[in-house]
Each structure stands twice: as structure tokens, then as C-alpha cells.
Design a protein around this nucleic acid. Structure first.
Length: 441
RNA sequence: GGAGAGGUGGCCGAGUGGUCUAUGGCGACGGUCUUGAAAACCGUUAGACCCCCUUAGGGUCUCGAGGGUUCGAAUCCCUCCCUCUCCGCCA
């Protein structure tokens, strides 16, 4: 959500942001609607004011005079009802458009149309050269019997998988290693709700717009179950969405609250399963564990003061936290500045970390680090008492710290040996009872 | 799943159709008094939005949410959500 006084003051700035972020919204038309809303609202309020004043007088009146006033008020009531009706129509459209308003990217963000125009900032590590023909993670995983995609598909459909034996243990090891690392750095760990309501999805700015990527729970069961109207309504009201990231639950944790400045910044780590429908990606990244419907992720979520310097510093910090993990795992990666066209509606700055994946002969996105300023906080209504006594919206940020099984792709592929076994990264060995190598059964 | 009780301001709690603007208390903050503090006394005490060039000021909405009845709703009616108690089922 955007402070509308800023949009009214500088419409061109927001029109440009729309253009650069590929958002189709006519700011001028929106502002015309905004004017109309206020005009109608003023009329409505005038009528309400009159009604309130007269209603107060009614009990003091008697006889014919009273009858006359009531008759008059009845007429006003009709007029008011009509005006309220048109106001409601205007407000609905006004709100819908308002939710489309993007935040303005920082000046440092490269302007571009999509992810092909992201800009590489730096690389870390050496891209491995193999003295043998390397296998991809699917081949490795199948021969080691630690990944079973066909049976995943049998049970749950396309883009589903089982991790098995040391594959499952390796996933838990890398997650636990990451959690420990963040906790050491002062982050508070959450296992949050995996189901979230519309307000949380909207508040974190996944909705409106991302509906088709989210699994909905508790709807459309009527046709199969043949329920009556009452039961169908109850199930409809159960409606919730499976989260695509724990950011949804964790960033919403303080929604509607006013925080103490001494409690800021809040450094939270969410650990959860994540669910994504991946609608419209048919055929894209079809092989292996790159793009799947369900995965596990450790996510960093920050709430801090409404100060660009403070949030910029924390952005660098949570970016570094993720790099620390990759460096500990000795996985080569690069950091890119995400361009305007590849940014979300609410983000003002975003970096991706892409980790080297031999089977892709390139870097693949494994982390995404975003600064929102107060965009999410306005939707979630999270404030704090600033030093000057006023209440301000916090800034929010988030970054992946690790996401699995995608991270297993570079681990398995980079750590593979000529005989088809995989060496377990040293830092993960303690999390697998000291085991050093995953070998063929 | 069954039965019942509830949801009012930061908190507790009164209010069952109007004439006072949601009684009262607690807490918090400010002031008087005091060397300082406590006590006592006095005062203040939410949010969103709109009008207004600004200040000042005025207005609307919000009593779990949304509809409805009415000239007028915290109060009456309908639907939904949430909390608590008991029973049943259950990892």
C-alpha cells in the first residue's frame, strides 16, 4: 500500500514505476477516481451529519411537528441510501486500483523488462571442473536411491518427489545447519502456520495478483461431497491458503500491532514447508528438483525503523547471512541486482543469489532478498512509536536463508565423485552422525 | 460433532431503541503539592477517513465482522467469525 498523499503530489513518479514494473495502471484515472470518491464521501457525510442532528431533536418534538420531521428524514434516508450505494461502488474500484499501486524502486535499481536484464554484482567461489563426465542430481539421486521422482508423481502428481534415506537426512541437515547459524546470530526461530487467511496473503502483497500460485484450502468441496447449502457455507468460511513462504505468516505475526522502538529490529527466522502451484510454468524446469510444488525453506524476516539507512544496512546483513551459508557449504554463487521488471509490486530493492548448478551449466536462483520499506507494513498495519512521539509504519525485509530441495541440486552435483557417490559437505557431517559419503546401496 | 456462555476503549466492566457526547473503575501520561518520592487532588487518555491553503476548528465512521429493521441501533432481527466451559472423537 502506498501513501496516497505521495501519489497525489507526484503522479508521474508512480506512473514511471508502473511502467518499469510492468504494471498496467493509469495513475491519472486513479487520481480522478480518488477525487470522485472524496467528493461523494463529503456529500454522504453531510447527509449523515444532518440526520444525526435531527434524530437527536426528534424525542423533544410532539404531534404534527414530529410527524413532519420524521417524514422529512425518511426522504433524506432514501437519498442517503442511494449516495452510500454509489460511494460503495466507487470505493470498491478505488481499493482495487490502490492495491495495484507499486512502490517506487530505488535509484540504484537497474531498469529492465525481465530477469534477463538483472545485473551481476559479484561472484564467489570457483566453478568446478570435473575430470569425468558429471551426472545431474536426478541421475545421482536415483542411483543412490535418495531421490524418487516417479513415485512422488504417482502419489501427488507432476512436480512431486520423495526424498529418501540419506537424501531426506541431507535435507534436514542443511536446514538444521542453517537454523543453528541464524539462531547464533540472534534470530528468533518460528515454525509458523502453513495455512494463512486472505488478510495475511494480501498484507504481504502476494494478493491480489498471486492467487493462481496459491493452493486454496476449504473451497469447492461441495460438488464432490454433495453438501447442503449451510455446510457449504461453513466450508467456504474455512477458506485459507497454503503459504508459498513463511514470510506470509511471520511478517503478519505483528499485524495490527504498535511495537516499542526498543524492540526493533525484529530478526525472525521462519522455518516451514512452502507450497506453490507453479501455474503457467508447464514445461519450464521440468526435470528434477528445481521447480516443485512443495519444499522447505528457512526464511529471514526483518521489521525495523522507518529509515532507509537502517533498512539498507539490514538488507546487507541478511544478504550476507545467506552468503555465509553458501560459503560454509563451499558452493560457488553470484549476487545480482534484480531489475525493475523482475521485481514485485511492493519491493524497492531486491537482490537474488544464484548458485552454480553444473547440470544447468549456469547459475540458478536459490535466494531472494527484498526490501519493502513500509509497503507491507501499511497493508499489515504494523507501526512503532517513533522518538518524536508519532506512530510510524515499520520497514520490512526478507531473504531466503536456505531452500531445499533446490539447494540439494548444487550440493549433489558439485560434491559428486567419479564412482557416483557424493561427499557430504564438511559442515553438514555433524548433522548426519559424522557420515562423510553417500554411496550406492 | 453435541450442549451452553460470551465478544464494549490500553485493561476490567456498566449500558436491552432516543433527550448527556458509551456510566464507572484500573493503568498510563501531564500538572498541583513536596527537598525528592508516595498519597491526595486536578486534568488528559483510540484508530481510520473527509472538509479546511496552513494553523485553529468542524464532520463522518468504528461497541467481533457483514447485512437488515427504524426518523434514530452497542441495544432488535439475520448470516458469519472468534473466545471460553462441559461432553464426544482424535495425533
Amino acid at each position: 500500500m502506498i501513501d496516497l498523499t505521495l501519489v497525489r503530489k507526484d503522479p508521474d513518479l508512480y506512473q514511471t514505476a508502473c511502467k518499469n514494473k510492468n504494471i498496467k495502471l493509469d495513475i491519472k484515472k486513479f487520481l480522478a477516481l480518488d477525487d470522485e470518491r472524496r467528493e461523494v464521501m463529503t456529500q454522504v457525510q453531510k447527509m449523515q451529519s444532518e440526520r444525526n442532528a435531527v434524530s437527536k431533536k426528534v424525542p423533544t418534538l410532539k404531534g404534527a411537528e414530529k410527524e413532519a420531521v420524521i417524514k422529512e428524514m425518511k426522504a433524506l434516508g432514501e437519498k442517503l441510501k442511494n449516495a452510500e450505494g454509489s460511494l460503495m461502488v466507487i470505493e470498491k474500484e478505488w481499493m482495487a486500483q490502490q492495491l495495484q499501486l507499486p512502490s517506487v524502486p530505488l535509484k540504484t535499481v537497474p531498469v529492465g523488462k525481465d530477469d534477463t536484464e538483472n545485473v551481476q554484482l559479484r561472484t564467489w567461489g570457483t566453478i568446478p571442473k570435473f575430470a569425468f563426465e558429471p551426472k545431474d542430481h536426478v541421475t545421482l539421486g536415483e542411483s543412490l536411491d535418495i531421490i524418487d521422482i516417479p513415485r512422488g508423481v504417482k502419489i501427488a502428481g507432476s512436480r512431486s518427489y520423495f526424498l529418501k534415506g540419506d537424501g531426506a537426512r541431507l535435507e534436514l541437515a542443511v536446514l538444521q545447519f542453517t537454523i543453528d547459524s541464524l539462531v547464533k546470530k540472534g534470530f528468533t526461530l518460528f515454525t509458523p502456520p502453513l495455512m494463512a487467511n486472505y488478510a495475511a496473503m494480501m498484507g504481504t502483497s502476494y494478493f491480489p495478483g498471486g492467487e493462481e500460485q496459491a493452493y486454496a484450502v476449504g473451497v469447492d468441496r461441495t460438488p464432490e461431497t454433495g453438501l447442503g447449502e449451510k455446510e457449504a457455507k461453513q466450508i467456504e468460511s474455512d477458506k485459507a491458503y497454503l503459504i508459498g513462504t513463511s514470510e506470509v505468516s511471520v511478517a503478519s505475526y505483528h499485524s495490527g500491532e504498535t511495537l516499542k522502538p526498543s524492540d526493533l529490529p525484529k530478526k525472525y527466522a521462519g522455518f516451514s514447508n512452502c507450497f506453490r502451484r507453479e501455474a503457467g510454468t508447464y514445461g519450464k524446469d521440468a526435470r528434477g528438483l528445481y521447480r516443485i510444488h512443495q519444499f522447505q525453506k528457512v526464511e529471514q524476516v526483518i521489521l525495523c525503523e522507518n529509515d532507509p539507512e537502517v533498512s539498507a544496512k539490514l538488507h546487507a546483513e541478511i544478504l550476507q547471512n545467506a552468503e555465509d551459508i553458501l560459503q560454509a557449504l563451499k558452493l560457488p554463487y553470484r549476487v545480482v541486482a534484480v531489475c525493475t521488471g523482475d521485481m514485485g509490486r511492493g519491493q524497492v530493492y531486491k537482490n537474488d543469489i544464484e548458485t552454480w548448478m553444473p547440470s544447468r551449466l549456469g547459475y540458478g536462483e536459490t535466494h531472494s532478498c527484498s526490501t519493502f520499506y513500509d509497503f507491507q507494513a501499511r497493508r499489515l498495519n504494523i507501526k512503532y512509536e517513533a522518538a518524536d512521539g508519532t506512530k510510524k509504519f515499520v520497514h520490512t525485509l526478507n531473504n531466503t536463508c536456505i531452500a531445499s530441495p533446490r539447494i540439494l541440486i548444487p550440493i549433489l552435483e558439485i560434491y559428486q565423485n567419479k564412482d557416483g557417490s557424493v561427499t557430504i559437505p564438511e559442515v553438514l557431517q555433524p548433522y548426519m552422525n559424522g557420515k562423510k559419503i553417500i554411496a550406492k546401496p
